[in-house]
Simulated assay, not measured.
Amino acid sequence: MKIRKSLMTLLGVFALTHLAPVDAHAAAQRGASKKASVAKESPARATKLAKAAKVVAVRPTKPIKFARAESRRVKASHLAHAAPAAQRSAPVAAPDMDNEGNPLLHSAAFMIADQATGSVLLEKNSDAVLPIASITKLMTAMVVLDARLSLTEVLLVANEDVDTLRNSSSHVPVGTELAREDMLRLALMSSENRAASALGRNYPGGLPAFVAAMNRKAAALGLRDTRFADSTGLNSANVSSARDLVRMVSAASRYPLIREFSTTANYPVSLNGRVRQFNNTNALVSSPDWQIGVSKTGFINESGKCLVMQAWLLNKPMIIVLLDSFGRFTRVADAQRVKRWLESAAVQQKVAAAVRTPST
Score class of each variant (00 low, 15 high):
M1P: 04
K5A: 04
L7M: 00
M8D: 00
T9D: 00
L10E: 00
L19G: 00
A20R: 01
A20E: 01
A20Q: 11
V22G: 10
A28R: 00
A28I: 01
R30A: 15
G31T: 06
A36G: 08
V38R: 07
A39C: 02
K40A: 15
A44G: 09
K54P: 01
V56P: 01
A57W: 03
I64N: 05
R68I: 08
R68C: 07
R73S: 07
R73C: 11
A76D: 01
A82T: 02
A83H: 07
A85Q: 09
A85F: 13
V92Y: 03
V92I: 14
A94H: 00
P95T: 04
M97Q: 09
E100W: 06
E100Y: 07
F110M: 10
F110S: 14
A116L: 13
K124A: 13
S134L: 05
I135L: 14
T136Q: 13
K137C: 14
A141T: 13
V144K: 03
L145N: 05
D146F: 02
L151P: 15
T152R: 03
V154T: 13
L155V: 04
A158E: 15
D161K: 10
D163C: 06
D163P: 04
T164S: 08
L165C: 01
L165Q: 11
P173Q: 03
V174A: 01
G175I: 02
A179Y: 08
A179S: 15
D182Q: 11
R185N: 13
S190I: 05
S190K: 09
S191W: 09
S197P: 12
L199R: 10
L199V: 06
G200W: 08
M214S: 08
A219W: 03
R224Y: 05
T226H: 02
D230K: 05
S231W: 05
L234E: 09
V239I: 09
S240F: 05
V246A: 11
A251S: 04
Y255D: 08
P256I: 08
S262N: 00
S262I: 02
V269K: 08
N272D: 13
G273F: 04
G273W: 00
G273N: 00
R274L: 01
R276F: 00
F278R: 05
N279C: 01
V285Q: 05
S286Q: 15
S286L: 14
I292M: 05
V294S: 11
F299A: 03
I300F: 15
C306G: 11
C306H: 08
F329W: 13
T330W: 09
D334W: 03
R337A: 12
V338I: 09
V338Q: 08
A352S: 12
T357P: 12
